[in-house]
Design a binder for these strands. Structure first.
Lengths: 253, 253
DNA sequence: CCTCGAAATTGGTCAATCCAGTCTTGACAA
DNA sequence: TTGTCAAGACTGGATTGACCAATTTCGAGG
């Protein structure tokens, strides 16, 4: 064999995976506070040069970050750190649900823990400025009693508003994560819903308990509501053409 | 203009993004039950041909799935659907924490809601086969009172065992997600911990309440423990060299 | 029948190139 | 002077083709 033509290892034997290196680099910049929400990253080409990796590798890393909801890319404009309120994409949970066949009851169980706790916290806090969004969604529910799909949107938004009123960003992120899952499931069956009026009434009572700064009642009303909602959804799923249900738990990636 | 020479679009005008197409394709296979945990995906090259996209594009999609904890790739072996128990990677939450500067108290707030609820459920269920793991971790804590880092590991595992005893996969996934965050934060300061013995005692009381199928006591003990743990961690952070704390909230991607 | 090593398989990466939106800039007209 | 808009640069989106490295497979040889 010739021993001077070959120049095998152009890069030092760094055993780190190149694409991980990209993710770690961005993570480092975020840790250091050099990248804040809304900021624009350096162009892919430049990033590739800085890290000494190829552009496809950089792109793979950026896609991974995008999947985690950290970045957003706009063709022609650039790649940006996700702005807006702290949000946890529903993608991972959706996949988990599809892979392990989470049941409706299992999801409601988690909801009960999260949202009953959130309702209690919201009532303890009693932040006046958080009441309006909740009230608005309740109004929206009463206004869409004959439009199940629209009703559902207000329903989900109400529950998010409650979590927001708990004034706990982490809790809010978790609730939003699950409510996305709930929305995806429920939107398939809500057309067969009965008693939307009763549902709206329950939401109103939850709101009133939080407004009255009565944590115990807020928790109790939320518990009651979720139990009934679980039963309601179960009955909605009964008279449904077979085959429509089992799948379709996936959300936006 | 000529109207027969041009043949502009080699691909039908699908306005879908290629990399999204890859993710959706895998998602579809999972929905249909054609891909189950542990299964191996078709090779990248074949997948690229099937979908009519390039391999770097396929790789970007697979990296996105990997970031969501859906797939795992092993060089030379193949790409597999993540096996094992339902698990939600800590990556997204870690980034969220770093980006929005979640405080220790905010994390503990979420923990209280999740874990107090989990402890209550675990006590209600009273599944005998879930008790052993909890007891084992309590034992481990008493055995490592002088080794804070090892103690912390048992601590975190105990809390996961409680969530597992709640027998709610969704809740367990959420608790694991947060406990990863807690571990990352706490491992920096646990060296300065006092009263590890008292902490072990509290865990033992939580365990006993669950073992006795006493939900109210389980919830109360867990609440009490988390409140004290929050104070303890706060004091640990006080006498710490400045600059070590603020960053380092990122986890494995 | 067992062991071991070569070859096929598969993920990991890079290089160069083109396409498609987006933003910037400066010339031209009002 | 000012406003408009079109050309060009900039940036992400995607492809082709090739090569490296780890793993698996399978047959030759003991």
């Amino acid at each position: 064999m010739n021993d001077e033509i070959k120049k095998p290892q152009p890069a030092p034997p760094e055993d780190v995976q190149s694409v991980d290196q990209v993710v770690r680099h961005i993570a480092l910049l975020i840790e250091r506070g050099e990248l804040r929400p809304g900021d624009r990253l350096v162009p892919e080409r430049e990033l590739a040069e800085q890290l000494g990796v190829s552009r496809p590798t950089v792109r793979a890393g950026l896609h991974a970050l995008a999947a985690m909801g950290v970045t957003e890319s706009r063709q022609g404009a650039g790649t940006f750190i996700t702005a807006g309120p702290p949000r946890l994409g529903a993608g991972p949970l959706s996949f988990l649900a599809a892979l392990h066949g989470f049941t409706r009851d299992q999801i409601f169980e988690a909801r009960k823990v999260l949202e009953v706790g959130a309702a209690g916290l919201a009532a303890e806090r009693g932040l006046a400025e958080r009441l309006a969004p909740m009230a608005e969604e309740v109004t929206g529910m009463f206004a869409t009693l004959t439009e199940p799909q629209d009703f559902l949107i207000h329903d989900v938004r109400f529950h998010r508003a409650v979590a927001a009123a708990a004034d706990s960003p982490v809790l809010l992120a978790l609730v939003e994560m699950i409510s996305s899952l709930v929305y995806e499931q429920r939107s398939l069956t809500v057309g067969r819903a009965h008693d939307l009026k009763e549902s709206a009434e329950m939401h109103r009572r939850i709101y009133q308990a939080i407004r009255d700064k009565d944590p115990a009642r807020a928790r109790q009303e939320m518990t009651h509501h979720l139990d009934l909602a679980r039963s309601a959804q179960a009955s909605e799923e009964l008279d449904l053409p077979a085959g429509v249900l089992p799948s379709r738990v996936m959300g936006n990636a």
